[in-house]
């Protein structure tokens, strides 16, 4: 067996080589715009970690999130290392960041215990719906970013192009797929794993299950006001569906619409 090349003039030459050598794995025509691999690329991100600012702004889509997840997922950087740096610069004010690092450790431990069962419902869903109420496949317009919902479409395209989404964008898309479109979470989880640079069945699948309520006490939903706050309304301004937004309304109204069986029981 011959060795694969390890010397390239630049990133573009490497990308050209891979596009040809791994053509079977291509994901469409658009050139990928991904974070670069390697420890050197992670260094400036590590340097930039600002734990108190992270704690204050991380729920906003422009917040000071670390973007270290692809490097953590591949063991290029370790949780312990990020924690130690955060403690050194910020002491107790690193608590929120350390807590979020804890989620990855938690999901890894859960995956070690569950193995392939991360693909199965961990608990019955709390939506009042049966498994038969959920479609098996992801609707193609969701994957292509052609639902006419500006927010969801932008997230789907960002995912395919960059291999990265802010955590809240992931939660919005997952809630939309599972609760608004009534698609099995496994279909959405597999879609994310195909694209996310940090994709890992542990964090990914168990987070989808958390949204679906098969690994939590209740289904996660969001509303338009929440999304507008987290995005400064940038998607809603020119959204073709703005007048007929499926996310508009209070949480109570949305829950009544999405989970009618729960109302009946109550």
């Amino acid at each position: 067996m011959t060795d694969l090349p390890t010397s390239f003039a630049d990133r573009e030459a490497l990308a050209d080589y891979l596009r040809q050598a791994f053509a079977d794995f291509a994901e469409g025509d658009a050139p990928p715009a991904t974070l670069p691999g390697g420890r050197r690329a992670a260094e400036p991100l590590l340097e930039a970690v600002d734990p108190p600012l992270y704690a204050r702004t991380r729920n906003h889509l422009d917040g000071a999130v670390t973007r270290l997840s692809p490097y953590l997922r591949h063991g290029i950087v370790t949780l312990a290392e990020v924690r130690d740096r955060a403690l050194a610069t910020s002491g107790e004010r690193a608590a929120k960041l350390v807590n979020e690092l804890g989620w990855r450790d938690y999901y890894q431990r859960a995956h070690a215990k569950l193995g392939q069962r991360v693909w199965e419902d961990q608990e019955p869903s709390k939506t009042g719906l049966d498994a038969a109420d959920y479609a098996s496949d992801l609707p193609p317009e969701v994957e292509r970013g052609e639902t006419s919902l500006a927010c969801i479409d932008a997230f789907a395209r960002d995912l395919a192009r960059t291999g990265y989404l802010h955590n809240h964008a992931r939660m919005y898309v997952a809630a939309y797929v599972v609760h608004w479109r009534r698609v099995r979470w496994q279909a959405g989880a597999a879609w994310f794993l195909r694209h996310l640079l940090d994709g890992d069945p542990a964090s990914n699948n168990l987070s989808w299950q958390w949204v679906a309520s098969t690994f939590s006490h209740k289904p996660y939903i969001f509303n338009r006001a929440n999304l507008e706050r987290a995005t400064d309304g940038r998607y809603c301004r020119d959204c073709p569906s703005a007048r007929d937004c499926p996310f508009a309304g209070s949480y109570e109204e949305l829950a009544a619409r999405l989970f009618p069986e729960l109302e009946r029981v109550a």
Partner: peptide, 15 residues
């Protein structure tokens, strides 16, 4: 379920 984006990220790391 890996695609070219993931392969590229890993390959750059290996180089």
């Amino acid at each position: 379920g890996y695609g070219l984006k993931r392969i590229t990220f890993i390959y750059e790391t290996l180089v």
